[in-house]
Write a protein that binds this DNA or RNA. Structure first.
Lengths: 122, 122
DNA sequence: GCATCTTGCTAACTGCAGCAAGCATACTGT
DNA sequence: ACAGTATGCTTGCTGCAGTTAGCAAGATGC
């Protein structure tokens, strides 16, 4: 975990907590986690799960996504060339108007256009 | 964890894996996790961390956000079904990895699956 | 037929997330 | 002064995430 401001979850948590004028114990109680554990997270000694991050976001009255970004679970800005490839696949797979077979055909065709490795043929 | 399709991570993972025509071991290897663990996740016996979900998304070539939604770490996109059709078209049009010709082929194919009227060629 | 490989799973194990109990220090009220 | 409270942290513990070693069954090639 690099100590850069963007990815420093603990530092960000401490900053948000202080901005909300909450003690470590108050935030821990509001979030439903133990205060020693919160202390360890803020000091970068422990690495919390997504559920703990959700609980902390709730206690801080901020979005969980913000904490996921600092924890490295989400990208800050989703734009970018490589992300677009994932969007097409994601959109096809999520489309309720397509049958499974149609979905497979579209995905295969897309893969043949974009990938070096097409999907395995049955 | 309710067994509804929206929140059933294991079922969703298995479905995506089968759609991608990967064996359990192939996906585990592509994702960099152990195959018994993947088996346990698919059967709902274990609850993976965000990092494992990221790795699985990478192995499946889908967005991690989709898996977070199924794992209950993110809310699903609040827009409705009609939006899905726009998403696939939008995603294809915006994809920088596709040539104009490939884009046209994909859009026409999609339209033939979903619409009665194929896209008019420009 | 047999040998080999693939597949999904079981069982035992290790490391760490997250907790409870409690410490040391600072602050407040009498 | 002292007692009580608040604060952030230390320590030891438990449960579970995630792994390795290996099993049973099915598939494949000779």
């Amino acid at each position: 975990m690099t100590p850069s401001p963007v990815s420093d979850l603990g530092g960000f948590l401490k900053e948000q907590r202080q901005q909300a004028q909450l003690s470590l114990r108050q935030l821990a109680e509001r979030s439903g986690i133990s205060n020693p554990y919160l202390s360890q997270i803020e000091r970068g000694l422990k690495k919390p799960s997504g559920e703990i991050l959700q609980a902390l976001a709730k206690g801080l009255r901020i979005s969980a996504e913000q904490l996921y970004v600092h924890a490295g679970l989400l990208d800050a800005d989703p734009s970018g060339g490589e992300r677009s490839a994932l969007d097409v696949r994601t959109a096809i797979r999520a489309d309720p108007l397509l049958t499974d077979r149609q979905r497979g055909v579209l995905l295969d065709l897309y893969a043949s256009f974009v990938d070096d490795e097409p999907m395995r043929s049955s």
